[in-house]
Design a protein around this nucleic acid. Structure first.
Lengths: 402, 402
DNA sequence: CTAATTTGTTAATCGCCATGACGAAATAGT
DNA sequence: ACTATTTCGTCATGGCGATTAACAAATTAG
């Protein structure tokens, strides 16, 4: 029940259960949950054959999960084959819920997702947070969280944890925002300013976006590079279904990969960083537009209308992305590059030049470049789902909690 | 589409044992082996307290490992403290041995390493393999392997497997050399041409070099970027103590990261790749030297003598490495960059410009740049140790084999 | 209507580790 | 020197978790 907090990052199956009989049992409970969650309603016998345990063993595991309210018995399956029909098991829609929150530059959003992955409640507040101090923003966010939790509870759910996506770098303690340039926040510990009754995880929005892609994407492979742009350019590396975090938790900072080493000076101290060519500000300048709110939609609109300046600007950004990604692809040999966040909406005009550059510079069949289906919803959904995944990864940890 | 891409690579603790009581037992056997191997002679009680099992449980595990010939009882410890002294346990020096082999451009080498990590036999043959066809090279290598195995057996060891390091890309099956430009080999399956009685693993020399660094390095962290250069430039990424292999097994190809996107044409199809600035050929040209054998030693000698052309050439290579590594460091946030292989000998003249470039372009404290102690021995030792690690990772698998 | 097949449960058993007690072998204190 | 204390390794016992084998229930095939 008391989870080892500083062992690994709370999200992701990082924490390893001990090699004892209890640990084995917990891992097997998790395997049952994952199997039922991934492959829809299943009988005990079907689960048993999938995970390689006997029907008897699965029966006791399932009993425990039903008693904990994590699984539900749907009743006898429609028999199409010979033999006694099984009793269908499904993940419960009335158990724990993951609460996801997003602190965007121009909005706050919160949602609740049940174990089935369905969004059961949401709340949004529009309005810029640029330059506001953390305190009032988090008070406001707490209000939205309580609102969403109340609505989820009316539906028979109980909150298992809160995950917050922020537009900035987060320390490996998963609570402290080290640097969020567009909010102008530095070294803020969000812990004391959010509801104390919920286990908290804070992470970069690009990280949560990539996890959403991994968990909810249509055909997302287990090894990919996720690139998203909101104001800066965020990247995330997923290897073998796990998010790569780096020593300090800063991995994935694609925005400051050098594209032209003698290029324009960047705020980071370097020269010719990707952000100087494909960042929002740079693209707007190249397109002859002024900064402001919701410029991404404007860019997409103008490009769709055939505006040559905008198209040229986006083509240039795509080329720069292609150069930066060539390095990343050579280094990591991923199965795909996924364009997410604001890049998803601009993909039609970015992708051709990006892919050309990538194909020209990498040997063999170029790495696939795909576009996220989730787009700007990614970080919020990824956050909420990270809590759900934590429950699936160790059902015994939450079993007694409600 | 069932993708076996992430199943397991024969080397490394990739394969996961099943969550059954037998699997648990095997994992605990492995934990005992690792503990004794890492922390020198230990009593049963010391092992028990380290891995969190009871003395009784460790006793039965140790009994089994001694019966299998993997552990040895050294006898009573010298008592310095109160209480009955323990009986020291050590990894056996007469059990399985890992056979490592290296196919270099200018030599062949084979060695045998026991469970204690000591090299117990070696054999080398000098002479170029450039352009020779695989068949005669592997016949020759097989001869050296048999010679080393015979010597190891005379010392009471038995060969647990063979790992071969090659200067080229290896498919994820760990047997097929996809492309080795400096040997001019393409799509060669080494399996049929090597001793059939030994379990075989083939891998890139840079990969084995980085594993050697991880396992044998003085203070090597669990997250680092390994850069080595023999003829081309090889890189390897180690994350959380595991080698990152990529979808096709080609991860770590630092040589073709773009440094100056409009730079000179490269054989890979791109322009301005790192290899165009820091590859052996490029450095020799910049230093005004002609290609040939053992040019690295010549470069080091001339640089040490103060040759300005050579120093300038190496400084330029360091700058290019710094630019390429900036991208990699931003993407992966490693704890260190390790210069290995031929770069180790040239580090004094490469490092200043490399570090300057890295510090200038990355925010916060720059990533540490260290030099490998193993240098050109890395790949061979890494190969042999990979076999040893496989035994430590699953002692039960080899228990009955001798 | 019977035979065959599949499901889920139950009772018996096995494997693995934990617990607690014990003798053995050292030190510390008198 | 002798006893108390501490620690080590082992043994017998028990608990927990999965396997095995047997069985009743519910369906299809003939």
């Amino acid at each position: 029940m008391t989870a080892p907090l500083h062992e690994t990052h709370p999200s992701g199956p990082g924490r390893r259960l001990p090699d004892t009989q209890q640990g084995m049992r917990r891992r097997n409970l998790a395997r049952v949950m994952h199997t039922v969650s991934a492959e829809g309603p299943l009988s005990r016998a079907a689960v048993a054959s999938r995970i390689g345990l006997t029907r008897a063993a699965v029966s006791t595991l399932v009993d425990e999960l039903i008693r904990s309210g994590l699984l539900e018995e749907l009743g006898p399956e429609r028999p199409g084959r010979v033999g006694r029909p099984g009793s269908a098991l499904a993940v419960s829609g009335h158990g724990p819920a993951g609460i996801g929150a997003e602190i965007g530059v121009d909005h706050l959003a919160v949602c609740a997702v049940d174990l089935r992955g369905i969004v059961r409640a949401r709340a949004v507040r529009h309005g810029t947070n640029r330059g506001r101090s953390p305190q009032p923003v988090l008070v406001e966010l707490t209000g939205l969280v309580r609102q969403v939790v109340a609505e989820a509870e009316r539906e028979g759910l109980w909150p298992a944890g809160l995950a917050v996506a922020v537009p900035g770098l987060v320390a490996r303690d998963a609570r402290t925002v080290v640097r969020a340039p567009n909010l102008d926040w530095h070294d803020v510990d969000l812990g004391p300013l959010l509801p104390p009754e919920l286990p908290l995880t804070v992470d970069n929005e690009a990280n949560f976006g990539s996890l959403a892609e991994l968990w909810l994407g249509d055909d997302t492979p287990r090894d990919f590079l996720h690139v998203s742009a909101e104001i800066g350019i965020g990247g995330a590396v997923v290897v073998d279904g796990r998010l790569l975090r780096g020593t300090r938790g800063f991995a994935g900072e694609l925005g400051h990969v050098p594209v032209r080493p003698e290029g324009p000076q960047c705020a980071c101290g370097g020269r010719g960083c990707l952000e100087q060519y494909a960042g929002e500000e740079a693209v707007l300048r190249a397109a002859g537009l002024s900064p402001g709110e919701d410029r991404v939609a404007l860019l997409a609109e103008l490009a769709a209308q055939g505006d040559q300046d905008v198209r040229l600007a986006l083509r240039g950004a795509g080329t720069a992305l292609g150069i930066a990604l060539t390095g990343a692809v050579n280094l990591l040999d991923p199965q795909a590059v996924v364009l997410g966040g604001a890049l998803a909406a601009l993909a039609p005009w970015l992708r051709p030049s990006l892919e050309r550059e990538l194909a020209r510079r990498t040997a063999g069949p170029a790495c696939a470049v795909t576009v996220s289906r989730l787009g700007p919803e990614g970080p919020l959904l990824g956050a909420a789902h990270s809590v759900v995944r934590a429950v699936l990864d160790d059902p015994a940890a939450v079993a007694g909690r409600n």
